[in-house]
Deep mutational scan, measured.
Amino acid sequence: DSWHDTVDGIELELHGADEELLKLAKELLKRGVSEEEVRRIIEELLK
């Protein structure tokens, strides 16, 4: 799946992010949310 590559990229960027955020990112990508949107959501949550 192409979203796996996206998640791997996000995981590299979010090496400090907790497991729950990564699960959320994967779930959003699986549901068709764009990579940009996922990054934006996670950045908001990390604030």
Rank of each mutant, 00 (worst) to 15 (best):
D1H: 12
S2F: 12
S2L: 13
W3I: 12
H4S: 10
D5Q: 12
T6W: 13
T6N: 12
V7Y: 15
V7M: 14
V7K: 07
D8S: 14
D8I: 14
D8H: 14
D8Q: 13
D8E: 13
D8R: 02
D8V: 15
I10T: 05
I10R: 03
I10V: 09
I10E: 03
I10D: 08
E11M: 15
L12A: 04
E13Y: 01
E13N: 09
E13F: 03
E13A: 02
E13G: 09
L14G: 04
L14C: 03
L14R: 02
L14A: 05
L14Q: 04
L14Y: 09
L14I: 15
H15P: 15
G16H: 08
A17K: 09
A17W: 15
A17D: 06
A17C: 05
D18S: 15
D18Y: 11
D18H: 14
E19K: 10
E19V: 10
E20F: 11
E20P: 07
L21T: 05
L21W: 05
L21Y: 06
L21Q: 02
L22N: 04
L22I: 13
K23V: 07
K23Q: 13
K23T: 06
L24K: 03
L24R: 02
A25V: 12
A25W: 04
A25C: 02
A25I: 15
K26H: 12
K26S: 07
K26P: 00
E27D: 10
E27I: 06
E27Q: 05
E27P: 00
E27Y: 04
L28C: 01
L28N: 00
L28M: 07
L29K: 04
L29H: 02
L29P: 00
K30G: 13
R31W: 11
R31C: 11
G32R: 00
G32S: 00
G32D: 01
G32Q: 01
S34P: 13
S34D: 07
S34G: 07
S34I: 02
S34C: 05
E36P: 07
E36D: 10
E36W: 06
E37F: 02
E37I: 08
E37G: 03
E37R: 04
V38W: 01
V38N: 00
V38L: 01
R39H: 05
R40T: 06
R40C: 04
R40L: 08
R40F: 05
R40Q: 09
I41Q: 02
I42S: 00
I42C: 02
I42T: 00
E43Y: 11
E43Q: 13
E43D: 08
E44R: 04
E44W: 11
L45D: 00
L46E: 02
L46V: 06
L46S: 04
L46G: 03
L46H: 04
K47H: 10
K47W: 10
K47Y: 07
K47E: 08
